[in-house]
Design a protein around this nucleic acid. Structure first.
Length: 570
RNA sequence: GCCGCCAUCGUCUAGUGGCCCAGGACAUUGGGUUUUCAGCCCAAGAAUCAGGGGUUCGAAUCCCCUUGGCGGUACCA
């Protein structure tokens, strides 16, 4: 595939055949990169073509270690993993740490652990143990410096790249001038000052240790357009690149563009899934791949997740302003990862919901994603309500043991007091969590672990205090309420069956002129003061201090006769 | 400024020239349900398909213009 016939050979005889221009380029390249570098041929040998089925996709997630894992990164990783898995390909992790200014200590750990939490562990690249797997490494760009240099050197040798000595100030000046002249800004054509500087002069500059960057020598024409076929956006007409983009910074690290071309080629990426802010870099990337003699991968430009901002406008979920942009948010609130995953899948391919309905017990990993169903639009607005609905569904389906374990491990980390309480008597709390659970119509009132304490703390016998009856509204007078409670206390027993228990409550209701069920009440509204619900509510409030609780009978059973009577006597 | 992407109920969207005076889900409202809330079941409201021009017998769907939103235009990714 790659032909490097124009690659300067070590053979001195052939070197003799080099034109003076070629010799000058080679000399400059040597000056630019004096040390030993791996040869391009050796790199191709080191990173051979992957042996995979023909339509297998090799995808990757390539975050920058900035100390923050964006939910959009998880979204991208999720989609990338799905496509690789469903085609028996490879999904890997590459750390893009070429910007030393933005790099944050410990950030790799954040990335790796976030991915792990969402079940998105890469097949290749750094794992949670800090060890790299895979044959195409290193998977950290800062450790691939020499690889990039080899290719950059090659580009200089064939005169597709050149050193640029322009200072920041000079660049700014040109930019201003271009603005004034109302011409397209950028380093191109005649604006590219260093493009045609004398190679010998460049050599002298290097000898004087002048700082420099390496730029691509673009051969494109901005007036020409070409069609890029995007897996998501479809066919897009774009102008050819004519910018002499920086491919190596003055710190000798490559820019994203060069690293993308080199890494994704060498690592055998077949499909690049990335944010759609990259779409306008396509012309540059195409040119880079072409200059390097690489076949470019397929591209899928994915719209970001948005949010409505204060002024009512739409903006990308912001790292600084929006807590929900950070994956830590979901962990702290205790949204189950699986719920977040399902929500994300749902915005990726909206027919996920129908699939979930038809496959209620399958792992979301079994859902097949399609590029043409990914939104071509401007990107969805993050919908917390929808996430919560999905979470309620997910938690509703959990078995009590799973729920208990999940709540416990969350609480131990984020609410140690509550964690201590539920871990002190696992048997009891497991019973509490099994109320209205497991049947085909489970209770669905929890959307995150942080809500559990509020709805279940009354089960904590030690801390239960007399409910505040001023918060309780009823047609019943306070003396009647007292009577109901004492009657209840007299007749209930822990050996009651649900039917017996119900019958007793009905008896109390009858004593106070309440109908035994809603239907009877509705048929004879003037005969009754209300229906049994009113009585049940009094007992519920007395027992739980809440107007909302799981099934009262089961609750009382879990609490036990003694505890119930104690509370009724308060 | 220039270049590109996008525009359907509050939200996510279905829709690729007739099946659409626009369908589903979430949310909302109302009703039902041998105990409340929740859940579940049923029902309702909710989009002049951004606006304007074409093309066509026929357009949410194709074309053009306008407007609006988003992105890019870095030695950041």
């Amino acid at each position: 595939m790659e032909k490097y016939s124009n690659l300067p050979k070590d053979n001195p005889e052939e070197a003799m055949n080099l034109s003076t221009e070629q010799k000058r380029n080679k000399k400059l390249a040597e000056k630019l990169f004096p040390g030993e570098l791996p040869s391009i041929q050796s790199l191709f040998e080191k990173y051979p073509k992957r042996e995979l089925p023909e339509d297998a996709m090799v995808t990757r997630i390539a975050p920058s270690p900035t100390g923050f894992m964006h939910i959009g990164g998880i979204y991208m990783a999720l989609i990338s993993k799905h496509f690789a898995d469903q085609t028996k390909g490879v999904y890997y992790l590459r750390i893009e740490d070429t910007d030393k200014k933005r790099e944050v200590e410990g950030a790799r750990k954040v990335i790796v652990e976030s991915l792990h939490r969402f079940g998105l562990d890469p097949e290749e690249g750094e794992g949670t143990d800090g060890i790299e797997r895979g044959k195409y490494g290193p998977y950290r760009q800062s450790e691939r410096k020499d690889i990039y240099k080899s290719f950059i050197k090659y580009l200089v040798e064939i005169d597709r790249a050149y050193p640029c000595f322009c200072s920041e100030e000079e660049l700014e000046k040109t930019h201003k001038m271009q603005e004034e002249l109302k011409v397209r800004p950028g380093y191109y054509g005649t604006w590219a000052k260093c493009r045609d500087i004398d190679k010998n002069f460049a050599g002298e500059m290097l000898e004087q240790n002048k700082p420099f960057v390496i730029r691509l020598r673009s051969t494109g024409n901005n007036a020409n357009t070409f069609i890029h076929n995007d897996l998501i956006k479809g066919s897009v007409e774009l102008p050819e690149n004519d910018l002499d983009a920086v491919i190596m910074k003055s710190d000798e690290l490559p820019t994203y563009h060069l690293a993308h071309a080199v890494d994704d080629h060498l690592m055998g990426t077949t499909h690049v899934l990335r944010g759609d802010e990259w779409l306008s870099s396509i012309p540059l990337h195409y040119e880079l791949f072409q200059a390097l003699n690489f076949k470019h991968p397929e591209y899928a430009h994915i719209a970001p997740i948005n949010k409505i901002d204060e002024s009512g406008g739409k903006r990308k979920l912001s790292k600084r302003k929006d807590p929900e942009a950070n994956v830590v948010f979901y962990e702290e609130h205790g949204y189950p990862e699986i719920a977040v995953t399902e929500y994300l899948l749902n915005i990726a391919n909206p027919d996920f919901e129908a699939w979930r309905k038809n496959n209620p017990d399958k792992s979301p990993l079994g859902f097949k994603l399609f590029f043409n169903k990914l939104s071509t639009g401007a990107g969805p607005i993050f919908d917390k309500i929808k996430l919560q609905n999905i979470a309620k569904e997910v938690i509703g389906k959990m078995k009590s043991e799973e729920l208990y374990q999940s709540v416990l491990s969350w609480a131990l980390k984020h609410d140690s007091e509550f964690g201590k309480i539920i871990s002190s008597d696992p048997e009891y709390w497991l019973r509490v969590f099994s109320i209205e659970r497991g049947g085909n119509k489970p209770r669905k009132d929890i959307s995150m672990w942080s809500e559990v304490k509020e709805v279940s703390s009354f089960f904590n016998k030690e801390q239960f205090t007399k409910p505040d009856w001023s918060n309780f509204t009823s047609v019943l007078s306070s003396s009647e309420i007292k009577d109901i409670i004492s009657q209840c206390s007299e007749i209930i027993s822990s050996v009651d069956s649900p039917e017996e228990w119900m019958e007793k409550i009905r008896q109390i209701a009858a004593n106070f002129g309440f109908a035994p069920n809603t239907k009877t009440f509705k048929e004879n509204r003037n005969k009754y003061r209300g229906h049994i619900g009113e009585i049940a509510q009094v007992i519920r409030f007395s027992i739980t201090g809440l107007t909302k609780s799981p099934d009262l009978y089961q609750t009382m059973q879990a609490l036990g006769e003694q505890e119930c009577k104690k509370r009724l006597a308060l």
